[in-house]
């Protein structure tokens, strides 16, 4: 164990010192070049390590994944569109896509509504109460999905009716005289998926709340007072004055949560591992790769995930360019 600690410390020191030496050398290298060339080359040398990391760990593998998605399970032979055709034709994968679609539909909107609700309510408290309640709701952000899995086990757990319940929900149900329910196995109306979504909302609502709250506080007081003088009610002020002015933040929160939703792996993996009709695309990817040892299917799944992301990507880039133009 001491070796590991030393190892990690060495990595930190070595990594930082190595980076400093590297940039020093790159800079020296640029300075060796004659006048004009120094200025031309230097930016690229400063960018080189970051671009190398991005190229090696994101761009190259993405292209390679695309290639693998047209190859067989062990990536030894090309199979054309077979992976895509087989996946899209299987009812299991269709179900997975449908579930993923539900997550996309429900979680970002839910996070925004919850975030707005909490932000608006907390805004009316005294500063101390506001800070305290916000911290409580923001805290799950630090907890992470695996620990959240441990926490929510004790909410959704179910014992046979003859025993005492240890899950909170069933504790409440039986307390009112009901029969215990095996929550995570009810796939009708995708109820169990909804329960898993509640966990993600629990983790992410704080994020939405903090950003939206900052935006709401930034709405100029004059516009609010003007509206009040004109006799607008609180509801009208909220929907017609506040919401339009925090539009950019609403979009940002929506996109950030959406990206998180599409990547959602841990929650489903630790709670049901995609069983009982709760599978989502990221878990299916993992199981194809490691349980079924099918790199071709895994690659095809992730390429489809990427395709789902393209509209978001285009939007994000557009948004960025508009912001840059406004700078």
């Amino acid at each position: 164990m001491t070796i590991k600690v030393l190892n990690a410390l060495l990595a930190v020191l070595g990594g930082v010192a190595g980076a400093i030496v590297l940039y020093y050398l790159l800079n020296k290298l640029a300075e060796l070049l004659p006048g004009k060339w120094e200025d031309r080359v230097k930016p690229y040398l400063y960018l080189l390590p970051a671009l190398a990391a991005i190229g090696l760990y994101l761009i190259y593998p993405t292209i390679q994944t695309f290639v693998y998605s047209f190859a067989n399970a062990r990536s030894t032979e090309f199979v054309g569109f077979d992976n895509y055709i087989n996946l899209l034709g299987s009812s299991g994968f269709q179900n997975t896509l449908f579930n993923t679609f539900l997550w996309i539909l429900i979680v970002p909107a839910g996070a925004i509504i919850l975030g707005l609700l909490i932000a608006t309510l907390a805004d009316r408290l005294k500063p101390k109460g506001e800070k305290f309640s916000k911290t409580l709701i923001f805290l799950p952000m630090a907890i992470g999905a695996v620990s959240a899995g441990a926490i929510w086990r004790f909410v959704y757990a179910s014992n046979p009716p003859t025993q005492d319940q240890i899950g909170l929900l069933n504790g409440i149900v039986t307390g009112f005289g009901g029969e215990p329910v095996n929550w995570l196995q009810i796939s009708g109306f995708r109820f169990n998926s909804l329960l898993l979504m509640v966990m993600l909302l629990w983790l992410q609502a704080g994020f939405a709340m903090v950003l939206l709250s900052a935006a709401i506080k930034g709405v100029p007081t004059e516009t609010l007072e003007a509206a009040r003088l004109d006799g607008a009610g609180e509801g009208a002020i909220f929907f017609r004055i506040v919401i339009p002015q925090i539009r950019t933040t609403l979009i940002t929160v929506f996109i950030t949560v959406l990206i998180g939703v599409l990547k959602t792996f841990d929650i489903v993996y630790v709670m049901t591992n995609g069983n009982f009709n709760t599978n989502v695309i990221a878990v299916d990817f993992f199981n194809q790769l490691f349980t079924n040892n099918n790199a071709g299917y895994a690659a095809a799944i992730v390429v489809m995930l990427l395709i789902i992301m393209i509209p978001v990507l285009v939007f994000q880039v557009r948004q960025f360019r508009a912001e840059e133009a406004a700078r």
Binding site: Y57, L58, L262, L305
Partner: peptide, 24 residues
């Protein structure tokens, strides 16, 4: 190429890292 590189980076913010796992 500055603006182009920056846009590539902004685009990559959206790309799920699962995409990179099989080749890596």
């Amino acid at each position: 190429g500055r603006d182009l590189l920056l846009i590539v980076i902004v685009g990559l913010l959206v790309v799920p890292t699962q995409v990179a796992l099989v080749p890596l």
